[in-house]
């Protein structure tokens, strides 16, 4: 069964470019497109795709960035529903601003990739998200390490499990930040790819649920990744 995908971006050029690049992947089918916040919400509700490729900055909304509003207004589709498979969002953006990244991830996106990603990599990321895993680009991994404090000394002072990364998760993040693919990470750490995916999903959950207020402040302070 192919993956049904909705493409949300306000630039027609980008949409057609992504369409072309994903055209090479036989198992991914682009079923709809949207150019702004209202039409994106409408399309996603009407089509119930497996994956939404979501641009972070979208016109037509009341919340900034626009991608965040789409995620918020589609929240009931993201949460696991026993009857139907959930809709999963993958953020695709050129934005480098840390606040934008944190905004879409914390609103429920399963990953964040930049528009410089190659076609095959994007297809792989879509597949991964469709399976319910998280997609971390090197940049996002670096962001996580920075936000959660890479220094070993800082970890001891935080007690909530959500507010820190385990040593293994940190290792996985570091390798991803160094540009390793998941399977290379698995080989490097002598673990299975499935375990890598588990670690990455755990990190994503922490990133979404942690109420560690440094996270938000960090993102605001540090406007550049």
């Amino acid at each position: 069964m192919s993956i049904r995908l909705v493409l949300v971006d306000d630039h027609a050029m980008v949409r057609s470019g992504v369409r072309t690049e994903l055209g090479a992947a036989a198992d991914i089918e682009v079923v709809g497109e949207a150019a702004d916040v209202p039409s994106a919400i409408e399309r996603v509700h009407a089509l119930r795709p497996d994956v939404v490729l979501l641009d972070v900055h979208l016109p037509g909304g009341t919340v900034r960035p626009g991608g965040k509003e789409v995620l918020q207004r589609c929240a009931e589709l993201i949460s696991a529903d026993p009857e139907q498979s959930p809709v999963r969002f993958l953020a695709l953006s050129v934005s480098d601003a840390a606040e934008d990244v944190i905004a879409v991830i914390r609103s429920g996106a399963r990953g964040y990739v930049t528009k410089t990603i190659s076609g095959p990599d994007l297809a792989a990321a879509v597949r991964r998200v469709a399976e319910g895993d998280a997609v971390f680009s090197p940049r996002l991994a670096g962001f996580v390490l920075d936000a959660f404090g890479s220094g070993a000394g800082e970890v001891a002072s935080v007690d909530d499990e959500l507010d820190r990364l385990s040593a293994r998760e940190r290792e996985v993040m570091r390798l991803i930040a160094r540009g390793y693919a998941y399977k290379e990470v698995a080989r490097e750490l002598f673990i299975s790819i499935k375990t890598v995916e588990t670690h990455v999903s755990a990190v994503l959950r922490k990133l979404q649920l942690s109420n560690r207020n440094e996270l938000t402040r960090w993102a605001a302070d540090r406007r550049l990744l």
């Binding site: 570091r174 160094r178 540009g179 390793y180």
Partner: peptide
Amino acid sequence: APVMVYVEALPDAVEAFVR
């Protein structure tokens, strides 16, 4: 391309990777 550079400032060292 692609060349990836990762630099991390640790409490007691700086590590850098070029891949």
